[in-house]
């Protein structure tokens, strides 16, 4: 390789580093500007809305899609917000809970999934769902740094924080999906006639009796995040926390449920396990699929939960 070629190569490398770094910051700050004004959509809008209302709300729900689709927060309190988000786990929720004001009086329901605690591959990477707030929210930035779930390149190329979300953000900026001022975060799943057949096929596939995994072990990462929540609860005496697992169509193993209940008791956390609430009910109208209730099922479940909530508060 002669010196001319070396120079040319170095020029390409240096120019690429400079241009890509500059372009990255341009894109990052541009998307920041846009995303700050986006209040709709799962890409960032729901998180933005949560961060803006979290300290003025009396009743909050955290969890994954099951929390989002199963708990009708309006039944519990007029000033409420359901922060359930598709595909997230306990790392995501624990981080958000730690952003709450400690002294504010609030009632918090945390939806937890038993599966999350027994998934040996769970590594807390769902915390990446908060990456759009990396370098922009101190608590979230600290949690992301501590999680070691971010790529090394993310420290150089900030636009990676918008990975997978850019189009959704832009779309919601120009065309919001709903009126966020009237949105409480609860998204019931309605099923039309044409979807019923598909639903019944899916449920029939889930209608089998599988044996429990003999080597059930709790995931240490999930336990750590649960303990982090527990530390926050201890520091926030004005808040009331209730941990809930919502129904599943056909859970054939209760060993994991018992182990999780034992852990919750050990940590002194209020926990209600409704996994088998509708186990013997053969009416498919309560279901969208084996892990998600339909609107009808969610309304019924929310009523059951409301009764228990009232009992607990009296």
């Amino acid at each position: 390789m002669n010196s001319d070629i070396t120079k040319k190569l170095l020029k390409i490398v240096v120019l690429t580093i400079i241009i890509s770094y500059g372009l990255d910051k341009l894109v990052f700050f541009g998307l920041n500007k846009i995303s700050d004004n986006v209040m709709t959509g799962q890409a960032i809008g729901k998180l933005n809305q949560f961060l803006s209302v979290k300290d003025n709300t009396d009743f909050l729900v955290f969890g994954n899609s099951r929390a989002n689709h199963h708990i009708d927060v309006d039944l519990f309190n007029d000033n409420s917000y359901n922060m359930g988000v598709d595909g997230v786990g306990i790392a995501y929720n624990s981080t958000l809970i730690n952003t709450l004001q400690e002294d504010k009086k609030q009632y918090v329901i945390v939806h937890i999934d038993t599966k999350n605690f027994f998934d040996k591959d769970y590594d807390g990477s769902d915390i990446r769902g908060l990456k759009t707030k990396y370098h922009r929210n101190d608590q979230i930035t600290t949690a992301l740094n501590n999680s070691n779930r971010l790529s090394l390149l993310q420290h150089i190329y900030y636009s990676m924080n918008y990975n997978g979300n850019a189009i959704g953000i832009i779309k919601n900026y120009f065309k919001p999906g709903y009126d966020f001022k009237t949105y409480n975060g609860y998204d019931p799943l309605t099923i039309n006639k044409s979807q019923e057949e598909m639903r019944d096929t899916i449920l029939s596939k889930a209608d089998t009796n599988e044996e429990c995994n003999k080597n059930l072990e709790m995931n240490l990462v999930a336990i750590d995040y649960l303990k982090s929540m527990k530390s926050f609860i201890d520091k926030a005496p004005n808040k009331t926390f209730l941990f809930v697992t919502s129904p599943i169509y056909n859970d054939t193993c209760d060993k994991d449920n018992k182990m999780l209940t034992a852990l919750m008791n050990e940590l002194g956390l209020n926990y209600l396990d409704y996994t088998n609430l509708y186990k013997n009910q053969k009416d498919n109208s309560f279901w969208k699929d084996p892990t998600h209730l339909s609107k009808e099922g969610a309304e019924a479940f929310s009523s059951v939960l409301l009764k228990r909530y009232k009992t607990l508060n009296n």
Partner: peptide, 21 residues
């Protein structure tokens, strides 16, 4: 040329940052 190539590569890098799966 070298500059154009660097710009194209940079744009691809940013596209990868935004859309990698």
């Amino acid at each position: 040329n070298t500059v154009k190539l660097s710009i194209i590569v940079s744009v691809i890098i940013i596209m990868l940052c935004l859309f990698y799966s």
